[in-house]
């Protein structure tokens, strides 16, 4: 659990972060969003003390981080950044092993950990361990960057726009991978992005920042439904809000029991309502058949059910 209590940070007397109080629960993905220069990256660097607080305290599991040794603190936290910051003179395996090495793990344990992480990110050890960062594609390099952040088995993972420089398709597959891996490892993740769809997709809760202050801290659906002010409403795309909310809702939660013949066009139960709507528009139909991953028909999704949203 991370607690920020009245945290401010000034640069030459100008506040970048001001009076920030926030509680991030263990195991959640907290995404900080906002326009450039709103203080979201600064907040992240305050958490691992790459920057010091000008005032206020940050506590992790009740302990004031200002009292801890900064380097040890950082080794307990994973850190992944936009341009990966992989060490160009080291192989992938050595890059991932940085923190375990700093923690003075025995060599066999480091190797086993590197192997495990590479497999977790779908990068076969045999073909990737000895590559240099310059030999990786953007998506592979970023996977290695995140694997490196996880290597020391940290309780907390800090991610500063880690997928920002990737093309949309790679970005989406890495987002899915992050969610898949998080479902297994349950880390506390603080994730900074300016991509609102990414925020809505990944977050347990979203912190919206503007000019160094928290504007709203809420779950994705509540942010869409009850924006705190015009800034948040604007940020989450006014006219597009309905579609954005639909992309958070799963077809499986809205479908009705199947009666009679299954409709011709099918949608996956795990797909979003947004995808379902798109299919309806494309095929000019008001009814979809809902199927599971194996293709079994589970139910039916009429357009009325889409408009109604998930049933409680």
């Amino acid at each position: 659990m991370i607690e920020l209590d009245g945290v401010s940070r000034l640069f030459d007397g100008v506040p970048a972060v001001e009076g920030m109080s926030l509680r991030i629960e263990r195991g959640e993905i907290c995404v900080i969003v906002g326009t450039s220069g709103c203080g979201k990256s600064t907040t992240l660097k305050l958490l691992n003390r790459l920057l010091a607080c000008s005032s206020g305290t940050i506590r992790i599991d009740g302990q004031d981080i200002a009292e801890l040794d900064a380097e040890r603190l950082r080794r307990r936290m994973g850190y992944a950044i936009q341009h990966t910051g992989l060490f160009p003179h080291w192989t992938v395996a050595r890059n991932i092993g940085v923190v375990p090495r700093l923690l003075e793990w025995p060599a066999p344990r480091i190797e086993a950990r590197v192997r495990e992480l590479l497999e977790l990110f779908g990068l076969p050890y045999a073909s990737f361990a000895d590559k240099f960062p310059s030999q990786l594609s953007g998506g592979q390099a970023q996977r290695v960057g995140v694997a490196r952040a996880l290597a020391g088995d940290p309780e907390i993972l800090l991610m500063d726009e880690p997928f920002g420089a990737l093309d949309p398709i790679t970005r989406e597959s890495l987002q899915n991978e992050l969610l898949r891996i998080q479902a297994r490892i349950h880390k506390t993740i603080v994730f900074v992005t300016h991509d609102l769809d990414e925020a809505l997709k990944l977050a347990s809760r979203i912190v919206v920042m503007d000019r160094g202050r928290i504007v709203q801290h809420d779950t994705p659906s509540r942010l869409l439904e009850q924006p705190a002010n015009a800034f948040v409403e604007n940020l989450f795309g006014q006219g597009e809000r309905g579609l954005k909310r639909a992309s958070l809702q799963r077809v499986g939660a809205c479908m009705l029991p199947l009666q009679g013949a299954a409709p011709a066009v099918s949608v996956g139960a795990e797909d979003s309502l947004r995808q379902a709507l798109s299919l309806m528009l494309w095929h000019r139909t008001g009814e979809l058949c809902v199927r599971d991953a194996e293709g079994r028909a589970l139910g039916v999704l009429p357009i009325g059910a889409v408009l109604q949203g998930p049933r409680a």
């Binding site: 691992n48 790459l50 900064a70 380097e71 040890r72 603190l73 950082r74 080794r75 850190y79 950044i81 936009q82 341009h83 990966t84 910051g85 992989l86 060490f87 160009p88 940085v98 923190v99 700093l102 960057g145 490196r148 800090l158």
Partner: peptide, 18 residues
């Protein structure tokens, strides 16, 4: 030496000497 490499090295918890 690229700034992001130095930042990630510091963020990993390397000491000044390391």
């Amino acid at each position: 030496v690229a700034e992001e490499v130095l930042e990630s090295a510091r963020g990993m918890g390397m000491s000044r000497w390391q």
